[in-house]
Amino acid sequence: MKNLIRKQIIDYSDEKIFCFGIICHECGKIRKSTPIRFSKAGEIPQSESKKIIFRILYEREHEQALEKAVEEAANFFNLCPHCGKFVCDDCFLICEDLDVCRSCAEDLQEIGEPSSFAGWISG
């Protein structure tokens, strides 16, 4: 699942902030991850070596931010088993026999409720 998300993720990061987003193939909304500030944001490297170090740090923190964004996205995105689309919780319906996206539910005449309705349950 995380691999699928990783393939779908869009990088919105800049020099100071790491941010990623995923587009729901059903509703087209982009869900962005929680922004993470680069630890050296605003600092100007004084030497070439510092530049190299800053760059390495940036890459490392970018990777870590991407990992967090993937984990975050996994909380909201589902894979429709019928059409194979990557959809958000609002567009993924929990049906009687098989959970599918809204379009597929309509096509298959399945009735369900969005999984985003779920309240937070312990466990």
């Binding site: 699942m1 995380k2 699928l4 996994a74 909380n75 909201f76 995105f77 589902n78 894979l79 088993p81 919780d89 993924f92 929990i94 959970d99 999984s115 985003s116 309705f117 779920a118 309240g119 937070w120 349950i121 466990g123």
Partner: peptide, 22 residues
């Protein structure tokens, strides 16, 4: 565990929680 279910079912954790609630 609950956290392993999304990976196994290709659904979000929220969907899992919704199923749990049901």
């Amino acid at each position: 565990e609950v956290s392993e279910i999304p990976e196994l079912c290709f659904i979000s954790i929220n969907t899992v929680r919704k199923h749990n609630a049901n």
